[in-house]
Nucleic acid binder design. Structure first.
Lengths: 186, 186
DNA sequence: TCACTGTTGGACCAACCGGTCCAATAAACG
DNA sequence: CGTTTATTGGACCGGTTGGTCCAACAGTGA
């Protein structure tokens, strides 16, 4: 029983890059195979359900990543500003300073949206709830906290779209830079 | 020389719906043919360059639509608030109250982004410039006006993403509702 | 009426799609 | 060392892709 040459986690991470760049429909098995360095057979060994399975694993990886680098820091002890700052730093890396697209956002296009409606909804929902919790800790009452949280996620997603549209990562960086201030000012 | 049964404009509008729902990669010729009611041959008569040509025509149609329903109202005489309100109304219809996706946004995924980089950049750029002009008319100086304009576009795009992610058009409606106020307050 | 001509459907094509299969491999164990 | 077995590459499958082609069509002008 030979150990796998590449840990499944690493495979998933490579698949993620393909889906993130091309979306679900646009990601072909040939690309997925090339990017992962695995033959089709090995790919189907890891993911018996084919492309849909791969995308599902990628989404779960994103959920894990979010839990570790976004939800956990937001829920950790510390001042709201400090907790937000840790999320900002993680997002800046995840999105390569505004140069990379959002996997979740790209999964909302075409068949993928129907296929992954629930995990997508849950991911956005969890993110918003974690942010709202921080806002409440900063003294906001429930409803404004929720609205601020939605607006925050919305700004980040919108910034990624605009950054790709204008071919300039600046809008994304500006949104991240301003983010902590929006909490204090509200 | 028989007149075309369907004006080219109407064909393009039908193709738009397919691209907007499935993105460029996800839109197949079979879907495009069915949605337009045209056989492949007729489709290639209208668009000799194939799918890329169709997408280009769709993008041009969007540019025309934007010019008529967004840029023109924003540049028209009237108070800034009134001009903004007219754009808001148009956008609310275009995006079906937050239930429909953004064609421009979906064109940023996969090969399409490379293919249509320039028209996409121009479309976003023109939109932002028209908004910035309104902001300047409202008394803002150049730089804040530009920032406000970018933030406005970013909020709309982000709201569309979030609305689709949460499966709830409310974030989009809220952004539109609040939009006029953001100008006054800045 | 009839030739003309822009338009049409759909057969057809090679290439690629997602997916299956199996012989060959190579670490672990006896 | 040989057996076992999880893992592997890649040939292969039917179906679909984007794209081509052409015979038939239907208004128009003479």
């Amino acid at each position: 029983m030979p150990a796998p040459l590449m840990p499944r986690e690493e495979v998933v991470r490579r698949l993620l890059e393909v889906f993130r760049g091309h979306g679900f429909d646009g990601a072909s098995l040939a690309q997925l195979s090339k990017a992962s360095g695995l033959g089709k057979s090995s790919l189907y060994h890891y993911f018996p359900g084919g492309k849909e399975d791969m995308a599902r694993a990628v989404l779960e990886e994103v959920e894990r990543w979010m839990a570790a680098h976004v939800l956990a820091p937001l829920a950790a002890p510390g001042t709201p500003a400090r907790r937000l700052a840790r999320m900002v730093k993680a997002l800046d890396e995840l999105y390569d300073g505004g140069r990379a697209a959002c996997l979740l956002g790209n999964m909302l296009v075409g068949d993928a949206r129907r296929l992954f409606r629930k995990p997508l909804k849950d991911a956005f929902g969890a993110w918003i709830e974690a942010l709202a919790s921080v806002a409440r800790d900063a003294g906001m009452s429930a409803t404004p906290a929720r609205l601020w949280a939605e607006e925050t996620v919305l700004s980040i997603e919108g910034a990624l779209v605009l950054a790709r549209g204008l071919d300039d990562p600046e809008p994304f960086r500006r949104v991240l830079r301003r983010l902590p201030g929006t909490l204090a000012r509200s």
